[in-house]
C-alpha cells in the first residue's frame, strides 16, 4: 500500500515537472551574447538618424543575402544605439530566421512583442517563425493575436489561411479567404476590371495582398481536390479495384504540383511578412 502511494506521488511529481518543462520555450537557458558590434557610422548624431542609417544598411545587406553584415547592422541598433527600437529586433530576427538560428530569432521576436504588445507585425513574424519550426499551435496563436491587434492585417489572415491549409482545415481556410475577399472589396474591384464598359485608360488600383487571396483560395481548393483524390485512390486500392485512369492521372498531376510547385511542407514561400513597412518604425 505504502509502495503504491510512493509510486503515485512520484508519478504525479514527474508529470508536474514534465508539464513545466513542456510549457517552457525551447530556449530555457539564455543564449550566449554575441560580441558587441562596432558601429561608427554617424557617431554623435541623434539616435533617430543612427537607427535610420543602420536600418537602411541592414535591409540592403538582408536583401543582398549578406546575412552576417545584416546581423551586425541590426545589432548596432538594438545593442548599441537603442534597445527599445522594435524594428531593429524584428530585423535581426529576420536575419536569424534566414540563418536557421531559430532560438535567437525567437528571443528577438519575444523582445519585439514585449516592446510593442499591440504591433500586429511582431506577432505575425513570430507566427511566421513558428511555421518554419512547424510549431503550428503557437503559429496559430500568434496569427490570431496579430488579428486581434489589427483585424485587417493582410499578412496575418493570409498566413492563417496557409496554416489552415497545411493542417487540412480546408473549410476554415476557404471561409476565411472568402470572407476577406468580400470585406476587402477585391471582388468588387475585379468586377469593375471586367466591366466591358469601363474606361480602360483609368487604372484599376488594388492592394496586391488582397488580390493574392484568390491565389491562396485556388491553392486551398487544389489541395482539397488532392485530398479527395487520395481518399478515392486509397479506397479503390484497398478493395483491389482499378483506379480510373483519368482520375488517377488528375491525382498524379496534383500530387506532382504539390511536390514541386506548391509545396506546403516548405510553406515559407506562401507566408507573408511586410517587414519593414509594418514594423512599427
Amino acid at each position: 500500500m505504502k509502495k503504491n502511494l510512493i509510486s503515485v506521488v512520484m508519478l504525479i511529481a514527474l508529470m508536474v515537472m514534465a508539464s513545466v518543462v513542456w510549457a517552457q520555450d525551447p530556449t530555457p537557458t539564455p543564449l550566449p551574447e554575441e560580441p558587441l558590434p562596432n558601429c561608427p557610422a554617424f557617431a554623435g548624431e541623434p539616435r533617430e538618424s543612427r537607427t535610420a542609417y543602420y536600418m537602411g544598411e541592414g535591409l540592403a545587406y538582408l536583401n543582398n543575402n549578406q546575412l552576417d553584415a545584416a546581423r551586425i547592422s541590426f545589432s548596432c541598433i538594438v545593442r548599441v544605439i537603442d534597445a527599445n527600437y522594435t524594428a531593429g529586433w524584428i530585423g535581426r530576427a529576420r536575419v536569424y530566421t534566414r540563418l536557421a538560428e531559430y532560438e535567437r530569432a525567437l528571443a528577438d521576436l519575444n523582445r519585439a512583442v514585449q516592446l510593442a504588445p499591440d504591433l500586429a507585425a511582431a506577432y505575425n513574424d513570430r507566427g511566421y517563425l513558428f511555421m518554419q519550426w512547424r510549431d503550428y499551435p503557437r503559429a496559430r496563436a500568434d496569427f490570431n493575436r496579430a488579428l486581434e491587434s489589427n483585424a485587417d492585417y493582410a499578412p496575418a489572415y493570409s498566413n492563417l489561411a496557409v496554416l489552415h491549409t497545411v493542417l487540412g482545415e480546408y473549410d476554415a481556410a476557404i471561409a476565411l479567404l472568402e470572407d476577406k475577399i468580400h470585406t476587402t472589396n477585391i471582388d468588387g474591384i475585379l468586377s469593375q476590371y471586367r466591366d466591358p464598359n469601363r474606361n480602360t485608360d483609368d487604372p484599376i488600383l488594388f492592394n496586391s495582398d488582397h488580390a493574392r487571396l484568390y491565389a491562396l483560395l485556388g491553392i486551398v481548393y487544389e489541395r482539397q481536390a488532392l485530398t479527395n483524390f487520395r481518399n478515392y485512390v486509397e479506397l479503390y486500392n484497398g478493395a483491389g479495384l482499378f483506379v480510373d485512369d483519368r482520375v488517377g492521372s488528375a491525382a498524379g498531376a496534383l500530387e506532382s504540383r504539390f511536390t514541386f510547385e506548391l509545396r506546403l511542407d516548405d510553406g515559407s514561400w506562401l507566408l507573408l511578412s511586410r517587414f519593414p513597412d509594418d514594423a512599427g518604425l
Binding site: 538618424s49 536600418m55 537602411g56 535591409l59 549578406q66 553584415a69
Partner: peptide, 13 residues
Amino acid sequence: IAPAVYFVGQGDA
C-alpha cells in the same frame, strides 16, 4: 524613418 539617412545606409551597404 528619416529617408535621407536611411538611403545613405542602403547606399553604404
